[in-house]
Design a protein around this nucleic acid. Structure first.
Lengths: 207, 207
DNA sequence: CTATTCTATTTTGTATTCAAAACTCAATAG
DNA sequence: CTATTGAGTTTTGAATACAAAATAGAATAG
């Protein structure tokens, strides 16, 4: 059995606590208390918190402490503006690199929904996340892949009710896959960017 | 006099040491030694190192230690691909937000070079950096502004000899400013992206 | 001579300790 | 009644301590 660093486990657990609202937005994190609750010292906890900060999940104010962030709609807009161009880039790069196996994986993640009359939102959200994550990974640009700010967009988007209806986005996803398959990088970029900007528009209007 | 956190000072100094090659690429950082040299304990040093890692300046391998990274040309390409779309985005956003004061600042940072027959590279590099940094800041997208991976591109680019001749880039800069002034976001984006992609091409060919 | 095991040393990851800053809240002044 | 001060408490930032893992090098086996 492999040894996992304490920081990593603490990181996972705190992140989960934030999503589960065990730690609520705006709430101040008592480091000593939380560390004790997790059965560790403050050292690994602080490292984990520093990571979470670069993911925009918490905010650290010097000499004041760490508070759980409520992601603002302004910030979500910022992240989506970023995503639109970044994933556009990823799609463009991926177009000239994807193997047919990878293309098939993308296809088969959405194909099940074609035959369904009623689409389960959680299932679709999971497929959506896989789709976007994989294209970034397969773009070959490791710097993009590492961007921590993007880690939680899907979660945030889902929670923010930003999720567009599968009936609306399903064809967009297939159009992107088609462009990738044709190795048309420019088209793939345009479609991906547009795909995300449509969600961005929704967010801007809802606000 | 304002109190500055130790981490911040340590961060600045270590970063400087890396740029000055006091810490050489590939070299392993002895935390105890370095901490002592800086007159601090390992606690603030480790935090500083964690920050530097997200800036791609060092690499931390669990249970092995921290090594100074030699940024690979692949990684520099990745960063420039990222920059091209991100700064493109920034320019587009900035176009609809910049005040005439801000436009003038951008102009006046390059105007001195118009009259010169011989352009000092260091001066021009500084102006270039100011130009790109400010447009990102003034884009209003705070998430983009915060991206740590971008912190050192200018430094890296300069060191990598990626710096294109001022005679070549000066007109590009003014063209971008003109688009910003006309509040033509799409044009500004296109020009900015192209401006960076030209450096990217140079990097790809040099490699 | 090369490869392997074992021991001593170093270095990391984590826990603990401690001083200084920030907060709490009751007492006091206006 | 509101604002201010100040003692006591909490919490943070930083230093120190310590155990486990990694490393280096010597001793040993082949």
């Amino acid at each position: 059995m492999k040894h996992v660093e304490l920081v990593d486990r603490v990181y996972d657990r705190v992140k989960q606590m934030i999503f589960d609202q065990d730690l609520k937005p705006g709430e101040k994190i008592r480091q000593e208390k939380l560390a004790e609750k997790l059965g560790v010292s403050r050292s690994p906890l602080q490292k984990a918190l520093q990571r979470l900060e670069s993911e925009l999940l918490i905010e650290s104010i010097p000499r004041r402490g760490v508070i759980v962030k409520e992601i603002s709609s302004k910030e979500l807009i910022d992240v989506f503006e970023l995503r639109a161009v970044l994933e556009g880039l990823s799609a463009r790069l991926a177009a000239s690199r994807l193997t047919s196996t990878q293309i098939n994986k993308l296809k088969s993640c959405f194909e099940p929904f074609l035959s369904k009359t009623e689409i389960d939102y959680d299932d679709y959200a999971k497929a959506d996340r896989y789709f976007h994550d994989q294209i970034m990974k397969w773009s070959g640009n490791e710097v993009v892949t590492r961007l921590e700010v993007l880690s939680n967009v899907h979660m945030n988007a889902y929670q923010a009710g930003l999720f567009r209806a599968p009936e609306e986005t399903l064809p967009e996803h297939f159009a992107i896959i088609e462009a990738l398959e044709k190795q048309d990088g420019n088209l793939a970029e345009k479609l991906m960017r547009n795909h995300i900007e449509l969600s961005l528009d929704k967010l801007r209007n809802d606000k």
